[in-house]
């Protein structure tokens, strides 16, 4: 019921807003095509390079950045799958079932995310060294520390919103709780599951400290760590850092786009009704 004029204003505001949000990324993309000498000084403030170059991308592809990117994808995906799965079990139990020590469990989950990651790195590293698990994909296991609490809490709010009546009608039909969970509850909480999956994925994707410590070997290095190698003792190779940022960001966005289509279909299919 909006007039064409107001909707135009809204669109303008939105476009402006998006431009502001995207600006740093656009600038970084433009900078990645500037030769190193134009990245600093007066020409740094120009929009386009005087002598555009692909040299930073070429230099980057000579490093093992693609392998690191692959590691990041594998590690983030494995973590996303198992964390989303166990978080959805756990949060369904918390949201819907009765059991002893529920409040304690919720409090403990919340409490673990009040501690900074740096204090778990040492003990986990020592255990991993003992088990011979450093430089492997076992690193996905401790990532539960940073991702499980958020995933669980998001899912609790979503499971809590699934109408009780639907569950009850399933029980009346004689379905067990586990069966009800998989057949009725899970599909209804899909938007929440996708949201928590994206949260988990990006959380792992962005992680630096554990990855640096546990997977120091070039073969198992993740992309965030690989970028930290793009510097000399006294300087940062800005051209390569900006190029790497572009390479790192675009595939993540593709994932996000794929996921959010699912979120949209989750609503439009009208799965959540009263």
């Amino acid at each position: 019921m909006q007039t064409a004029k107001t909707s135009k204003t809204i669109m303008t505001v939105i476009i402006l807003y998006l431009l502001i949000i995207a600006f740093p990324f656009i600038w970084v993309t433009l900078t990645s095509f500037k030769p190193e000498s134009e990245i600093w000084g007066q020409s740094a403030l120009k929009l386009f390079a005087d002598q555009p170059t692909m040299e930073h991308y070429e230099a980057l592809f000579k490093t093992t950045i693609l392998n690191s990117l692959k590691n990041s994808f594998i590690i983030a995906s494995i973590t996303t799958i198992y964390v989303t799965l166990i978080a959805s079990f756990c949060s369904y139990a918390i949201a819907r079932l009765k059991f002893k020590f529920k409040k304690v469990l919720v409090a403990v989950i919340l409490a673990t995310s009040m501690f900074p990651q740096m204090i778990v790195v040492g003990p986990i590293y020592r255990t991993f060294v003992k088990l011979g698990w450093t430089n492997s994909f076992y690193i996905t296991l401790p990532y539960s520390m940073i991702t499980l609490p958020v995933a669980t809490f998001i899912l609790i709010t979503h499971f809590a919103k699934v109408p009780v009546e639907m569950e009850e009608s399933a029980y009346i039909d004689g379905a067990s709780k586990i069966r009800t969970f998989f057949r009725i509850i899970l599909p209804l909480a899909m938007p929440g599951i996708f949201t928590s999956a994206i949260m988990t994925f990006i959380g792992v994707w962005n992680e630096f400290l554990l990855s640096l410590t546990l997977n120091s070997d070039e073969k198992f290095r993740t992309a965030t760590v690989a970028i930290s190698f793009l510097r000399g003792q006294f300087q940062i190779f800005w051209g390569q850092v900006t190029a790497a940022t572009v390479i790192l960001t675009i595939p993540t966005l593709i994932i996000v786009i794929l996921f959010q289509k699912q979120i949209i279909s989750g609503i439009t299919s009208g799965a959540v009704k009263e």
Partner: peptide, 17 residues
């Protein structure tokens, strides 16, 4: 969910691989 995830991983593994 799983099939989407797996497809994504495989596509990316292929692309980066």
């Amino acid at each position: 969910v799983l099939s989407i995830l797996l497809t994504v991983i495989m596509i990316l593994a292929l692309v980066t691989g």
